[in-house]
Amino acid sequence: MISQTDPEGRLRHLLTLEHLPREMLLRLLDRAQAIVDGDIGSRALAGRAVCTLFFEPSTRTRMSFQRAAQRLGADVLNFDASTSSTTKGESGRDTLKTIEAMGVDAFVVRHHENGAVAALAAAAGLGTVLVNAGDGRQAHPTQGLLDMLTLRQARGADFAQLKILIVGDVKHSRVARSDLHALRALGVGSSGSSEIRVCGPAALLPDDDTLAGCTVGHDFDAALAGVDAVMMLRLQRERMDEGLVPSLRAYHDAYGLTAARLRRAAPEAAVLHPGPMNRGVEIDDEVADGPQSLILRQVANGVAVRMAVLETLLAGR
């Protein structure tokens, strides 16, 4: 796999949070928090061009990257696969190289295939930056970072004291994988007082080493007991067609986060969801819009995190 860092140890691409040094992760979170607090600085990317190269639909991720690049002063090009030459058979590599030849400095890429963004990074020119905005079920690093920033704001910086519960379709979730990489790097599960819990139907939990070190269960009510944060995942409705979920009603009965269920968690436990939400399936309105929900704060933090990432990768190059 292509290295994310250059020979001096500086971040060259952001492809995954797996094996990202803790110190680098903390620097990105600290910079994002400074941006949240108003330290935007100068238009650090004035004269640079950033292309959002999305081969899958997106609302939050695409628009927050666009907003982040604009706030940093960059020119933004938006690529829509449905109206591009990819519909005529052009490969992703040729698409990237074509746009790169127009003087684009960075590509924010979403793709349905595992490893597709790393492959494009390997094909890119030496000075071109790639950011993974979600590939297959493998990684979504900026979502992992914004989730960690939101948790840190709500529960403090000492992650080694937290009990975190991730609920739902972990098997197919790139968000869950990036969150797990980040939580481990920040010390969750490293002491007897902290723990990563994972809960969901057996058919929606991975059978590889993704959940190594996690406490895994299928009883949502039991898993909620005393946790400091609940990270809900979207039920991908296509899994019903595959026979992995019997019905939306059955899923909600077993794994839907209701106000009554939430009371099993620690007082003021944080509720997170990467969106888009299936209201009334994995989460009820009363919880999604309730006082413990940090879902809209996640969205707001996404802009700051993506500004921090683009600034780190591009400023000064």
Rank of each mutant, 00 (worst) to 15 (best):
F79Y: 15
V108Y: 03
V167R: 15
A154N: 11
A101C: 09
A81W: 13
K171V: 07
V131W: 05
V175C: 12
G89E: 04
D80N: 12
L77V: 14
L96M: 14
L165W: 08
G134Q: 03
L146H: 07
A176L: 09
T150G: 09
A157N: 08
G136P: 10
V188M: 07
A123V: 00
C199K: 01
I164L: 13
L146V: 12
R155C: 14
K171M: 11
A101F: 10
D147A: 02
T86S: 15
G168L: 01
T128I: 05
A106T: 00
T83E: 11
K171W: 08
R93L: 13
V108N: 07
S91H: 14
S91M: 11
A122M: 01
S190T: 15
L96N: 06
N78S: 14
L120K: 06
A124S: 15
D169P: 06
R184G: 10
V109K: 05
A185K: 05
L145V: 02
L162E: 12
A119K: 15
S191A: 15
Q138W: 13
N132H: 00
A101N: 14
L96Q: 02
G144R: 06
G168E: 00
D179G: 05
G200I: 03
G192L: 09
A176Q: 00
I166S: 06
D179H: 06
Q161D: 12
A121N: 08
A160L: 00
L183P: 01
L126G: 14
T98K: 12
V129T: 11
D75H: 12
V108F: 03
F107T: 10
I164R: 10
M102P: 01
H111A: 03
S91R: 10
P141K: 05
L183H: 03
L149C: 08
L130R: 04
I164H: 01
A116Y: 11
K97D: 00
K88W: 14
G115E: 05
V117P: 08
I99Q: 02
L146E: 02
P141W: 00
L180M: 11
R155W: 02
K88H: 14
I99A: 02
A185E: 02
V117E: 02
R177H: 08
L183C: 01
A122V: 08
I166Y: 10
A157R: 14
S178Q: 10
L96R: 05
A116M: 11
